Simulated scan of single mutants.
Amino acid sequence: MPARDGVIWSATAIPGREPGRSRATGSGLREFAESRELAYVMAIGCNRHVTTVTGRTARADTIIAGLPKRKWHTLSAGDGAKGQRLYRWAFVALADAEGAAPGHRWLLARRDR
């Protein structure tokens, strides 16, 4: 998936907490949020290598490009100046950091409809 087609996100979900969002990539931001058990969503480069729960390691855009159509869901991001903002979303479970509870890391992608 070329970068212009969407934004690729790395997401962490902590039960019972609403996620925050950030495009900041400052050193230590992820560690800061996780050490305080804060849920967050952070943009990553499409060329970043990630490891899925199945053990596959590849570029984020390569993993997203390989998803079948049934994995993409159209959801509204609310009303915009030209009407409803609809995007297609998909996610892939990622391997958790050592010592972390399972099921908390995801690769989330958004494409224009």
Results as ranks from 00 to 15, higher is better:
Ser22Ile: 05
Ala65Glu: 12
Asp112Ser: 14
Arg23Thr: 13
Phe91Glu: 13
Ala60Thr: 00
Leu67Ile: 09
Arg23Cys: 05
Trp72Ala: 07
Thr25Met: 08
Arg30Tyr: 04
Gly83Ala: 10
Asp61Arg: 06
His104Phe: 02
Asn47Gly: 11
Gly16Cys: 11
Thr54Glu: 13
Gly28Glu: 05
Thr62Gln: 14
Ala95Thr: 11
Ala93Val: 00
Glu18Asp: 14
Pro68Ala: 10
Val41Met: 03
Ala97His: 11
Gly28Trp: 07
Ala97Asn: 08
Ala13Asp: 05
Thr57Gly: 05
Phe32Asp: 04
Pro2Phe: 01
Glu18Arg: 12
Arg30Gly: 06
Thr51Ser: 03
Ile8Thr: 05
Gly83Trp: 02
Ala39Asn: 02
Thr54Asn: 08
Leu38Asn: 05
Asp96Asn: 14
Ala81Thr: 10
Asp5Tyr: 01
Asp112Val: 12
Pro68Gly: 11
Gly78Ile: 01
Leu38Pro: 00
Ala24Gly: 10
Glu18Tyr: 11
Pro102Asn: 08
His73Pro: 00
Asp79Met: 15
Arg48Trp: 02
Gln84Leu: 14
Thr54Leu: 10
Ser22Pro: 03
Val53Trp: 00
Arg4Ile: 11
Phe32Arg: 04
Arg70Phe: 06
Leu107Ile: 09
Arg105Leu: 13
Thr12Arg: 14
Ile63Leu: 15
Ile63His: 04
Arg17Asn: 06
His49Ser: 09
Arg30Pro: 01
Asp112Arg: 12
Lys82Pro: 00
Arg21Tyr: 15
Thr74Arg: 14
Arg56Met: 12
His104Gly: 15
Arg85His: 06
Gly80Arg: 07
Gly26His: 05
Met42Arg: 12
Met1Glu: 03
Phe91Tyr: 13
Gly6Cys: 06
Arg111Glu: 10
Ala3Pro: 02
Trp9Ala: 02
Thr54Asp: 12
Pro15Trp: 00
Ile64Gly: 01
Arg88Thr: 02
Arg23Phe: 13
Ala43Arg: 08
Gly83Lys: 00
Arg4Gln: 13
Val92Trp: 07
Arg110Gln: 09
Thr57Glu: 13
Lys82Ile: 04
Gly78Leu: 08
Asp61Leu: 08
His49Thr: 13
Gln84Asp: 15
Pro19Thr: 06
Arg88His: 07
Thr12Leu: 12
His104Val: 14
Arg17Tyr: 11
Val41Pro: 00
Gly28Tyr: 06
Lys71Trp: 04
Arg4Met: 11
Asp5Val: 03
Ile8Val: 15
